[in-house]
Amino acid sequence: MIQTIGLTKEFNGFKAVDNLDLRVEKGDIYGFLGPNGAGKSTTIMMLLGLIPPTKGEIYLLGEPFHPRNVAVKRRIGVVAENQYFYKEMTAQEYLIFFAELYQVPNSQKRIDSLLEAVGLSNDRNKKLGAYSKGMQQKLAFARALLHDPELLILDEPVANLDPTSIKQIRDLIEEENRLGRTVFVSSHLLSEVERLCKKVAIINRGKLLAEDTMENIKRKLTDTILLEIELNREISEVGKELTQFPFVKNWHAEGHRIEVELETDRDHRGEISRFFYEKGFLILAMKTKEMSLEEAFITITQQNVSLLTRGEDTHEKK
């Protein structure tokens, strides 16, 4: 649905986006992450044809993209980071205007259902100038979905929303995805991306740091995993013997409980179980404490920063 090859944007010699390769498959909910100034918005603007790339290619919905390719644009729905409305219009008039622009058949029915879905039915005849930020965000969602697009590009879709509205929108996105729509989400709310997205791309300083499924990202981009083990008795000095394993990075014991930090090259849980069994311990519980996307994101981007400052390749993890 979206593919970029070597996408680059330079502003007066500064590379805002640097050789970016993205691939969003049909049916994906694709998260696009990066800290402020990473090049996310520039990438989205290029995807929407609002600014021309300096270099590289964009394919949208399987076709090479050109800003004047209106046929492709008609198949995309967009919710931008900042909402811009004609403040003198009412929500109803606003959606009718866009329905006419996109030539939506049975537009009034569609408008009614979307206003219902985003919870703005009762405010449809209010001027948009009187709308709160949250209401505007919801209306932008309704507008983006109005023409039944195949691809949804969402830039910070739940920013400015209260928890109830966030859930409403999240459900709507999931519902639209279930209906076969591909969703490309750029967000700083990592928890939201984590909940919604099947696949994630992380960029910093214009460069792509990682693009994979959520699990793989977390696994690939963190070099240790924390194993929490509950034993039947106190561990005492046995813990020290764990250091004989080269994949054990660190350990910390407290009473019956021990935390072992392992390398992530492969699954070492079997070897650890056997060790404690041979030492006469009974394992009451064992669980992997996973790194959240947020922790991974911070780790990755920080590493990336430090690596970049040393001039090393950011993709290679030691």
Partner: peptide, 14 residues
């Protein structure tokens, strides 16, 4: 300035 132009250009406006 208001940004409304950009919203139009997401769609079929040239």
């Amino acid at each position: 300035e208001q940004g409304t132009l950009e919203v139009l250009f997401y769609g079929p406006v040239t």
